[in-house]
């Protein structure tokens, strides 16, 4: 099942996703302000909505220099990789019946593969910057993303097992009777944590921890290249929220309202949850993050997989 009008779907998804990513910058600032008893951006346009536009204009006109000591080619390529790979993942997301660029039968694998390539972006950015903070940030990002990717894959295996397919639309259809969050609650929690680590958001933003690494892998970035990292982060948040919706919360399914509304509602809920995490949680130390991953998450993910397999088989 591929969209009858692929070009339309491609452009539609790109425009919506990019607009949403820009809108999230405003939403995040407003929500954080709400939870921290301040106003947030409220001057430019109604409710400060035009702040997004102002920021965009600003970032286009900002001077954007490449440090002379940096590895120039890699320095420019790195931010492009993150935006490119995250955008690519949206190609296989079924937003509603028929609203999808291409419903690959290996959809989930495709997304995992793309997020693996995304790791290169931060590593190369940290390496090319030739700044001590950036290098440390890049290495941290690599270690963190690699570690949490293992559990991400393992946590998703339970869903694949229940649905019997990597095809995302099949996974949504398989949840007609019960959302996978019920039989796969452990998998959901594991994926949520791995997802936060994968997007390098607070509380797992150690690669860019501003209090110690002054922005980590993108310390040396300015102007549009910094803007791309910024947009890439929000695209990642949208992607992980959409994935949680599709894999564990029945995707577009829901009563009364049209499918696309349900999808957007569920996705927005998780986006707001991501922002709440940022407002509510402190940042752990890096060694805590790594040992949490390898010593707690990995055994849990393996146990979850085996138990799911055995129970699903015994059930019928």
């Amino acid at each position: 099942m591929t969209s009858p009008y692929p070009i339309l779907a491609i452009l539609g998804i790109l425009v919506v996703v990019m607009t949403l990513a820009a809108g999230l910058i405003w939403l995040e600032r407003r929500l954080l302000a709400l939870w921290q008893d301040r106003y947030g951006p409220n001057r430019v346009g109604p409710f400060g909505l035009l702040q997004v536009l102002a920021d965009m204009i600003k970032i286009f006109f900002k001077e954007d220099w490449i440090p002379p000591f940096a590895d120039k080619v890699v320095f420019v390529i790195a931010p492009a990789i993150i935006v490119g790979t995250v955008l690519m993942s949206f190609a296989v997301l079924p937003i509603a019946p028929g609203i999808i660029v291409s419903d690959l039968n290996i959809g989930l694998l495709f997304i995992l593969g793309m997020s693996s390539i995304g790791v290169y972006s931060v590593v190369l950015a940290g390496w090319a910057s030739d700044n001590k903070y950036s290098l440390l940030g890049g290495l941290r990002a690599a270690a963190q993303m690699l570690s949490y990717e293992v559990f991400m894959g393992l946590a998703l295996m339970g869903v694949v097992l229940l649905a019997g397919s990597f095809q995302l639309s099949e996974i949504v259809s398989a949840q007609r009777r019960v959302w996978f969050v019920v039989p796969q609650f452990a998998g959901f929690i594991l994926f949520l944590i791995a997802g936060v680590a994968e997007t390098r958001r607070l509380p797992f933003d150690l690669p860019e921890a501003e209090s110690e690494l002054i922005a980590g892998f993108h310390s040396e970035y300015s102007g549009m290249k910094f803007g791309l990292f910024f947009v890439g982060e929000y695209l990642g948040v949208i992607l992980i929220s959409s994935l949680i919706t599709i894999l564990f919360f029945g995707g577009w399914m829901g009563p009364v309202l049209p499918p696309i509304i349900w999808f957007v509602l569920k996705m927005m809920f998780f986006i707001c949850f991501f922002i709440l995490l940022r407002a509510a949680l402190p940042r752990p130390r890096f060694d805590q993050l790594m040992s949490w991953g390898w010593k707690v998450m990995l055994p849990l993910a393996l146990a979850n997989l085996l138990i799911t397999g055995a129970v699903a088989l015994a059930w019928g």
Binding site: T2, S3, P6, I7, A9, I10, L87, M88, F90, A91, V92, V101, S102, D103, L104, N105
Partner: peptide, 8 residues
């Protein structure tokens, strides 16, 4: 289904 992916 890879042609749309390629375009994307």
């Amino acid at each position: 289904g890879y042609l749309p992916i390629f375009l994307f």
